[in-house]
């Protein structure tokens, strides 16, 4: 899970909606383009935004791990499969075969130059697609996220449901680890059946408090009316307009470019 990092960076001060516009614009741009230069620029933009967001490098470790896996897997699979499809008409420059002989159905998995090149493009695209949206949870407090939902007129019970689930996640993990420890102490060799027993205990312990929680919600007058007022509000300010305009400009430039390339 991604944890909110408390800071007062320019990114933190933005309205969550402008960050959503940013990540969707950048993602869309990455999907539309196949140009190394544009993808590289998008990566650079994302990195600059990341630096502005003031998130400690340590917190990024899991993201880098995912990125690394995607780049590796992306490049490798595309290197093999890009030229391997039936509708591919371009040149095929085989570097070497992954398998020593031709296996039925699978083939000999040749690594091609064209595939490798496409693999790089694909990996760069995935880097943008992963990097851009992750900025949202890192720089937006969950309570501001909830305000976005309220602004979007989601029903209150749905908002409460999402809020509570965020609150429950740490508790769920804690329960899971405790139960797993307990099980390890009861039984040495645990198999699939034991995993199911663990799930059952986890479910029961997670749901057991629901009765009490519902009563507590009751005493807190939840459901008094279908509308609620809200202490905090979010405002789409000048900074947000500027940031969104920037995001959309990037998308626009990419659109024009891809149009020029293909048109």
């Amino acid at each position: 899970m991604i944890e909110y990092v408390n800071s007062n960076s320019p990114l933190h001060r933005l309205d969550p909606r402008s960050k959503i516009i940013f990540s969707f614009s950048i993602m869309l741009a990455a999907i539309l383009t196949s140009s190394y230069i544009i993808l590289a620029s998008l990566i650079i933009i994302s990195i600059i935004i990341w630096i502005m967001a003031d998130v400690p490098i340590k917190k990024l470790k899991p993201i880098f791990l995912v990125l690394f896996t995607f780049v590796l897997m992306g490049t490798l699979t595309q290197a093999v499969f890009y030229t391997d499809r039936t509708n591919y008409t371009g040149p095929v420059t085989v570097l070497f075969n992954l398998l020593p002989y031709n296996v039925p159905v699978i083939g000999s998995l040749p690594v091609t130059v064209e595939g490798l090149m496409y693999g790089v493009v694909f990996s760069m695209r995935m880097v943008v697609i992963i990097l851009a949206p992750v900025i949202i949870p890192f720089t937006t407090h969950p309570s501001d996220m909830i305000l976005v939902l309220r602004e979007m007129r989601f029903p209150e019970w749905m908002i409460l449901l999402i809020t509570m689930s965020i609150r429950f996640i740490p508790l769920t993990f804690q329960n899971f680890y405790t139960i797993r420890n307990a099980q390890k102490l009861r039984k040495i060799k645990t198999g699939f059946h034991d995993l199911m027993l663990l799930m059952e205990t986890l479910l029961i312990t997670s749901l057991k408090t629901s009765k009490q929680m519902a009563l507590s919600l009751e005493t807190k007058a939840f459901g008094y009316s279908s509308k609620r007022t809200s202490l905090k509000t979010i405002k789409f300010g000048k900074k947000d307009v500027i940031f969104s305009a920037f995001s959309l400009t990037v998308l626009g430039i990419v659109l024009i470019n891809t149009g020029a390339v293909y048109g």
Binding site: I166, Q212, K220, F222, G223
Partner: peptide
Amino acid sequence: VQLFSVTVEDEVAFIAENLNYSV
């Protein structure tokens, strides 16, 4: 079982919000 929100502030304002009080 009685904390539902993601900040203390929201938690303490919860009942008042439910009762549709003004900001």
